[in-house]
Design a protein around this nucleic acid. Sequence first.
DNA 1: AAGGTAACCTGACTGC
DNA 2: TGCAGTCAGGTTACCT
Length: 278
Amino acid sequence: MPELPEVEVTRRGLVPLLTEARLLHAEFPGKPLRWRPHPYLARHVAGQIVHAVARRGKYLLLEMASGWLLIHLGMSGRVQCVTDTQALGPWDHFDLRFQPRRGPYQRLRLTDPRRFGAVLWHSRADGPIEKHPLLAHLGIEPFDPHFNAMHLHQRWQGRSVSVKQALLAGHDVVGVGNIYASESLFHAGIRPQTAVKRLSVPRCTRLVDAIRQVLSAAIERGGSTLRDFADSHGKTGYFQLDYYVYGRAGQPCRVCGTTVRTLKQGQRSSFYCPKCQR
DNA sequence: AAGGTAACCTGACTGC
DNA sequence: TGCAGTCAGGTTACCT
């Protein structure tokens, strides 16, 4: 479910509810998430005011005076705000009671059947949030003005990894997951198997533009809902209706009619049009 | 250092 | 209906 657009759509939904909200009580019901929570997370969070709801890559960051709460949605996670009395569901693995600036108490719930998601605490005393081990090695944000063709071209000099796998790795640019990698490469006219060192500067330019265009279109459409994504208010996304290649193997290309193909790269499916992409 | 693979976990779907 | 097999939006850990 959650690549950058879905996380960003979630973040935008949380901003009006959580900004300047007071966090009251954090719990981890049910089975553990990917990592054991910080032993004092609940204690650190209780009573804190949320000053900002930010995002880095696919991580949501709740910033408060003493530190940050990091939330990752993994493969199947979603975050929703529910009424204070809403019963816990079987896949609710994080529950955060809070008092918004206006209105009644609410609860932020992380629902994640596969439990690849995570909720972590980073204390301000341990340095800036960028230094957190999970964030420290992330690539540049796709909407950062410094993300451009030269950035990619330089980093990809001499590297033989395929462009699809390079995008997924997230070391050169963050937020592009399996769906949006295939879609971006289609719009850039680049085959997913292409070795990054073979990409010229003009082709890198097309890729940068395509990534930005695809991600922002997906955000505007509320993200992609394949089976269960919903934003913080429970609204589903519609960008799956705008896919050109993802999940369309065997169907005609929406541009030229050629049959869309699929292949496996690093145990992940890629989709491409053999005529539109070279 | 870079590249490849296994692992984490559950649910949905397919085919016999 | 049941069971085995496959696949799924992400990321880290470990091997060569």
